[in-house]
Amino acid sequence: MQAIGLCRFSYPAFGGFQVEHATIDERIAYLYAEDRMEERFQLMETVALPCLREQTDQNFEMIIVIGDSLPKLHRDRLNDLTADMPQVRIVSEPPRPQREVMKELLNAARTNPSEPCLQFRHDDDDAISVDFIERLRQTVRDCPGLIRDNRTVAVDFNRGYVAELGTQGILATETVRSLYVASLGMYVAGRCHLTIMNFAHEKIGRFMPVVSLSDAPMWVRTHNGYNDSRQKKVKPVPVEPLTEAQKAEFAARFAVREERVKQVFSER
């Protein structure tokens, strides 16, 4: 079954952001600001991409959506970071309504729309477990009745870590949180044109069955200077330095390695 991931990398959409801007030019200036872009690349390099490289099931496609106005130096840097990843396809789009363009790209990526597929979103500052694709496929196989009776079914791996990364390494806390973007997948039946981008992730359970699994940590959500969802006043999440056991877990489960984090963030 085809598996398709979608990652929005500083794409200047109309809508799709909690941080509001009066014009698209203001949004582009905000997204491409030097400090912000440097942090996005640091997180992309140390968090978002390594876990994709080390998936135990390599049979997936990752669409990375960028704006057609992304400066060449950033486009070249992204190309270099993903050059060794055959699953990655970088797509350049002009500013358009967020959900419209993402839905189009997901449906266009389906090699055979008459066959079912799996879809997931992947934020550029989060990690998924290296067995996410494998477990997503297995969970769908484990639910034949739901698959038979529904056009769409969500699979939510709801245990993970909130983490902060920097020159000090990794600080984190384990938590259970339902319907985060990270490690939330969706089965889509053949001849169904709905996509995971038709739904706000935290409301997806209103529209389809959700299979929730909390047996193991399956994601790392980073809190950083430019989280769109944290630009407004929100309750802080206390984090602590990783134990030696957690450092090993982060490396094995998420391909997030503390020494590499320290190195990349120190190069700024």
Rank of each mutant, 00 (worst) to 15 (best):
E26A: 15
V162G: 04
A154Q: 03
S69Y: 10
G15E: 10
T173N: 15
L49N: 08
D149S: 11
K247Q: 12
R253H: 15
V237E: 15
V140A: 00
Q246W: 07
V188K: 05
F265L: 04
V101I: 15
H74M: 01
M44N: 08
D68K: 12
V234A: 05
R135M: 10
D149H: 11
E104D: 14
R96I: 01
M208H: 06
V155S: 01
E45P: 08
E240L: 11
Q58V: 02
I133T: 09
Y187V: 02
Q246M: 09
D142G: 04
S178R: 13
A83K: 14
H122D: 01
V176F: 11
D76S: 10
L118R: 01
I147W: 00
Q58L: 03
K232G: 10
D123C: 07
L70P: 08
G225W: 05
F157K: 04
R99A: 02
V130P: 09
L31Q: 09
G16M: 11
Q2R: 14
V47E: 08
R96L: 09
S212A: 14
F14I: 11
V130A: 10
F9V: 03
K247L: 06
R257G: 04
G15A: 08
Q263M: 11
A189Y: 00
S229H: 10
K72I: 12
Q87S: 12
I147Y: 00
E134R: 12
E115D: 11
F250L: 07
T243P: 10
L49I: 14
A216C: 13
N79W: 01
I147E: 00
M85Y: 06
V91Y: 07
D84F: 06
A182H: 00
R151Q: 11
M37H: 05
M186N: 00
F60K: 03
D76Q: 12
A3G: 03
C51R: 09
V211R: 10
A251G: 12
P97D: 01
Q246E: 15
R77A: 11
N150F: 09
N227F: 08
Q2D: 15
I147L: 05
G166R: 08
D123E: 12
T243N: 08
P241K: 10
H74V: 00
G5L: 15
L213H: 14
C192N: 14
V140G: 00
L73C: 04
R75T: 13
L184T: 03
P50Y: 12
N112M: 08
E164M: 13
V181F: 06
W219P: 03
Q138A: 15
G16K: 10
E249C: 07
R159G: 01
E240R: 13
Y161N: 02
I63A: 03
A216F: 15
K103R: 15
E104R: 12
E54A: 13
V239A: 13
E34A: 15
V234Y: 08
Q87A: 14
K72S: 13
G190H: 04
I64K: 03
E38A: 07
L242N: 11
A251Y: 09
A248W: 04
P97C: 04
R135W: 09
I133Y: 05
L81R: 07
